[in-house]
Computed example of a mutant assay.
Amino acid sequence: MTEKVRKPRSDSKMYQLPKDVLDQVNDMLLNENMKYSDIQYWLETEHNMKISLSSISNYAVKIYQAAQRISDDLERTKFFVDYIGDKSELDASKATTAILKSGLLQKIATAEEEFNEMPVEKAGRLLVELNRSEIARERLELDYKKKTELAFEELETRMYKLIKGYPELREKLVEVLKEAKQKWLEQQEELK
């Protein structure tokens, strides 16, 4: 089996720069008055490094895209935090799963070169694991619902035995239990 040789990234020279030099380049990229040719000239004259304009340009595009993704993720996270804060009854695990799923799907959709470096199987496994945790949570909810319904039935049976000789009290109890069960079911639907 022959190993596939990867073509070097067009901006790979940028990542080979010393950290302090790369930090200065990043600062220059933030300066709207600075052109890529100015950065190229600075690297060549100050640090004796020849880097093409396309390498600088490709690096800048990736930096801007990464900054935009981080900004978008922060905005999305802030929205979820604000939303959860307004709804204290909201299940935090649902919100956390939604955030993770959204971030993973966003990464898969926009990763381009990063996605090429991440094996598809790994991305798929991560998505499958998130789906499994969601299914497990749904099973827990269903189990909780069944147990609660059994508890209601047990309560009804016991109460009926206690008030067997009082028909009008029994009718009132049936109404109260039906109302309580209906309210509980409505609350469960609202939480979904």
Rank of each mutant, 00 (worst) to 15 (best):
1 M>Y: 12
2 T>G: 12
4 K>P: 04
6 R>G: 04
7 K>V: 11
7 K>M: 06
9 R>Y: 09
16 Q>D: 15
16 Q>V: 04
17 L>Q: 08
17 L>G: 07
18 P>Y: 06
21 V>I: 15
25 V>E: 02
27 D>T: 03
29 L>D: 01
31 N>F: 00
32 E>W: 01
33 N>Q: 09
38 D>A: 07
39 I>P: 03
41 Y>Q: 15
42 W>S: 03
50 K>C: 12
53 L>K: 13
53 L>D: 07
57 S>I: 04
61 V>G: 00
67 A>D: 11
68 Q>P: 00
74 L>Q: 12
75 E>H: 09
81 V>I: 15
84 I>E: 05
87 K>C: 05
89 E>L: 03
90 L>R: 04
92 A>S: 07
92 A>M: 05
94 K>Y: 05
95 A>T: 06
96 T>C: 07
99 I>M: 14
101 K>S: 14
101 K>L: 07
102 S>I: 01
106 Q>I: 01
107 K>T: 15
110 T>I: 02
113 E>T: 15
115 F>V: 08
119 P>V: 04
120 V>Q: 10
121 E>F: 06
122 K>P: 00
124 G>N: 10
126 L>V: 05
128 V>R: 05
129 E>M: 09
130 L>R: 04
135 I>G: 03
137 R>M: 15
139 R>S: 11
140 L>E: 13
141 E>H: 14
141 E>K: 15
143 D>I: 15
145 K>P: 01
145 K>C: 07
145 K>D: 07
146 K>V: 15
148 T>G: 02
149 E>C: 06
152 F>Q: 03
156 E>Q: 06
157 T>R: 11
157 T>K: 13
158 R>L: 08
158 R>V: 01
160 Y>S: 00
160 Y>G: 00
165 G>I: 01
167 P>V: 11
168 E>D: 14
171 E>C: 01
174 V>P: 00
175 E>W: 02
176 V>E: 08
179 E>C: 01
180 A>V: 08
182 Q>I: 01
185 L>E: 15
186 E>G: 00
188 Q>L: 11
191 L>Y: 01
192 K>Y: 09
